[in-house]
């Protein structure tokens, strides 16, 4: 929907959308490689402190120390290595929390949209109640309750964001269920569950994939926000949100402690959402 709807038709738009997909997907694959290889390619130990090397600037600024490419934070930890290790947490949360949220939300949406009746009333009411919660506060509350750690963050994201899938998938499943092909499948003797899985699900799947991609970007942000308020995971592994929180407090002394993790987070979130929007254009036959 982003700029595709407004930019009009034509091959130029198609090429631009393709480029956007490749750039976003490429960057995410690159970050995935960095995250997987972090223990071997990170130049320093991300947790090693050296108070004599605190707040070293990045390599092109005077006073930089060779080997610390993007400088160090106030405890003398290497910013580049911490960003590489932080990518592990960010992507792990994106993939696991995104997939789980998708699975639960889409299932509930399909059930509500296709079967209607009590299932729909219960699930729709649940969605209404959920929409009345401030999501950031709710996630902070949940993680504070469960206690910090990766499982808590993932659980908080699933508990809060299932409605994003359920709302959209419910509406789509409802629209599909009213179509002739569904009726003819039923007439041809398929059961209700069979119709749902074999006829409706494949038609709703493109929407689910787009939502999943967007959700991964949201999960990355939620993890960053939680570690920003110091509720993410214990300090034994670096997170971008934690680095940003530290950078925010020493912003006037060492801008690089904030800037580099912020750039990493910004690019990853932008990539996920551009990938999602690009896929939406690809899948939507009207736009194509």
């Amino acid at each position: 929907m982003a700029d595709a709807a407004s930019a009009g038709g034509g091959r130029g738009r198609g090429r631009r959308a393709g480029l956007r997909l490749w750039l976003a997907g490429g960057w995410l694959l690159f970050m995935l490689a960095v995250a997987l290889l972090a223990p071997w390619i990170a130049p320093k130990d991300p947790l090693a402190q050296d108070l004599f090397l605190g707040r070293l600037p990045p390599f092109w600024v005077e006073g930089a120390e060779p080997g610390y490419w993007l400088g160090t934070d106030s405890l003398g930890r290497d910013v580049l290595s911490r960003i590489m290790h932080g990518a592990r947490v960010a992507l792990l949360v994106a993939l696991v929390a995104g997939s789980l949220t998708c699975l639960i939300g889409a299932t509930l949406g399909l059930l509500a949209g296709y079967f209607g009746g009590w299932a729909d009333i219960l699930i729709s009411r649940g969605i209404d109640i959920w929409m009345a919660f401030p999501p950031v506060l709710f996630s902070i509350l949940l993680v504070a309750v469960i206690g910090p750690g990766l499982p808590a963050i993932i659980l908080a994201i699933v508990v809060i964001d299932w409605t994003r899938f359920a709302r959209v998938v419910r509406a789509e499943a409802m629209a599909q269920a009213a179509m002739d092909y569904v009726a003819s499948a039923r007439v041809a003797g398929r059961g209700r569950a069979g119709t749902l899985l074999a006829e409706i699900l494949p038609n709703v799947l493109p929407t689910i994939v787009v939502l999943l991609t967007l959700e991964m970007g949201i999960a990355v942000i939620v993890e960053a926000i939680l570690s920003f308020v110091n509720l993410s995971i214990p300090t034994d592994s670096p997170t971008w949100g934690g680095m940003i929180a530290e950078g925010r407090s020493s912003i006037h002394q060492a801008w690089w402690v904030l800037v580099f993790p912020l750039v990493a987070l910004f690019l990853m979130v932008l990539s996920f959402s551009q990938l999602g929007e690009g896929l939406k254009d690809r899948f939507d036959p009207v736009l194509r």
């Binding site: 982003a2 700029d3 970007g217 942000i221 987070l265 910004f266 979130v269 959402s273 551009q274 929007e277």
Partner: peptide, 12 residues
Amino acid sequence: ANGMALSVPDFL
């Protein structure tokens, strides 16, 4: 600019 503004949340 609209697409960019939309892709990135308020926190960032």
